[in-house]
Simulated assay, not measured.
Amino acid sequence: MESILTINNLTKKFGYLTAVKDLSFTINKGNVYGILGPNGSGKSTTLGIVLNVVNKTEGSFHWFDGNTSTHDALKKVGAIIERPNFYPYMTATQNLKLVCKIKGVDFSKIDEKLEIVGLLERKDSKFKTYSLGMKQRLAIASALLNDPEILILDEPTNGLDPQGIHQIREIIKQIAAKGTTILLASHLLDEVEKVCSHVVVLRKGVKLYSGRVDEMISSHGFFELKCNKETELIKLLENHKSFSKVKIQDHLITAFLSEPMLSDDFNKYLFEQGIVLTHLVQRKESLEEQFLQLTDHNQN
């Protein structure tokens, strides 16, 4: 697998505060990576370091094969890490022409990129007439002008209404489908679950998980149970090899599976043990539940 970005034991301290601690992960070509974590978890700091706008304290990172200087590598990167900043009284086309001059890109790219983000019909409208979602989409068009190998987005749907959020996510999926690698920072689990193939979960600058999104949520799910012989059922579950954890709240027993099991097989087994259930629901864990488990396990 061709790597685009490799981060090794990266640490960033702001005085007494450690924003990123001993962080390592690799981004391979052709995937959509999410850096997921609550505000203050070190997402933006990490992006700032690899984009050369924040100095690292310790550790290292390299772009592509490691033989390219960061300055040259960044010519193959498209990034939006702050709110879109264009000239309000200039049209979308005029603003993008300026970006083309800075990046040394031919003007012929402008219409192509505006079409990708759904703004071709509004290319002669002034930037100040754009909605927040349109401004964000223009920023994405601007970041795509140099046909980057990787597109980096920091909280791309922040502050947008539901329609704007949906449009940005669809655009990200379309760009990824054409082979561009994407790295996005987000505090929204829903966003990562819908858009990303891989996720790095951060909390207070520390990596809690790194890997495929589908592997993170490939748990075997859980049963929600109620019965009149509660104590006997809990004891049986705690001694059963198929269950990793049992939780009890308001007489609802949640039993987490460590291997696949069908609800009808489970029900039959309990019946043979003399336990009749009054409630049985089988559920799959969402990314949110996995995330909460991860962050719970790493409270200290």
Rank of each mutant, 00 (worst) to 15 (best):
residue 240 H to R: 07
residue 8 N to F: 00
residue 2 E to A: 06
residue 39 N to H: 07
residue 180 T to D: 00
residue 113 K to G: 00
residue 166 H to P: 02
residue 79 A to S: 15
residue 292 L to K: 04
residue 49 I to R: 07
residue 284 K to W: 02
residue 204 K to H: 10
residue 208 L to M: 15
residue 50 V to T: 08
residue 160 L to E: 15
residue 269 Y to A: 05
residue 105 V to N: 10
residue 4 I to G: 03
residue 17 L to M: 12
residue 139 A to F: 06
residue 264 D to W: 08
residue 58 E to G: 00
residue 172 I to A: 05
residue 58 E to M: 02
residue 19 A to I: 12
residue 228 N to P: 00
residue 122 R to Y: 07
residue 257 L to W: 14
residue 266 F to Y: 12
residue 267 N to V: 00
residue 141 A to C: 11
residue 220 H to K: 13
residue 187 H to S: 01
residue 115 E to P: 00
residue 94 Q to S: 13
residue 128 K to Y: 08
residue 102 I to G: 05
residue 151 L to S: 11
residue 210 S to L: 04
residue 14 F to A: 11
residue 115 E to N: 07
residue 61 F to C: 01
residue 213 V to Q: 13
residue 8 N to T: 09
residue 92 A to M: 13
residue 134 M to H: 08
residue 140 I to S: 03
residue 218 S to Y: 06
residue 56 K to A: 05
residue 147 D to R: 11
residue 228 N to L: 09
residue 194 K to S: 10
residue 87 Y to I: 08
residue 223 F to S: 09
residue 24 S to F: 07
residue 192 V to E: 10
residue 118 G to H: 06
residue 272 E to D: 14
residue 214 D to P: 01
residue 144 L to A: 06
residue 68 T to H: 06
residue 28 N to F: 14
residue 102 I to Q: 14
residue 191 E to W: 05
residue 229 K to A: 06
residue 268 K to W: 04
residue 261 M to G: 03
residue 46 T to H: 06
residue 100 C to S: 09
residue 95 N to F: 01
residue 289 E to I: 01
residue 6 T to E: 15
residue 228 N to K: 11
residue 289 E to Q: 11
residue 148 P to L: 03
residue 90 M to S: 09
residue 159 G to V: 10
residue 203 R to Y: 12
residue 186 S to C: 09
residue 124 D to N: 13
residue 162 P to Q: 06
residue 116 I to T: 14
residue 299 Q to L: 09
residue 161 D to S: 02
residue 188 L to H: 13
residue 226 K to I: 02
residue 89 Y to P: 03
residue 63 W to E: 08
residue 243 F to S: 10
residue 18 T to W: 12
residue 153 L to P: 08
residue 299 Q to D: 09
residue 109 K to E: 15
residue 141 A to D: 12
residue 121 E to L: 04
residue 129 T to A: 00
residue 4 I to N: 01
residue 254 T to C: 05
residue 75 K to M: 10
residue 253 I to S: 08
residue 289 E to F: 01
residue 245 K to A: 07
residue 21 K to M: 05
residue 168 I to Q: 06
residue 22 D to N: 15
residue 16 Y to M: 04
residue 276 V to E: 15
residue 237 L to N: 10
residue 211 G to N: 13
residue 261 M to R: 12
residue 193 E to Q: 11
residue 74 L to P: 13
residue 279 H to E: 11
residue 259 E to I: 02
residue 18 T to Q: 13
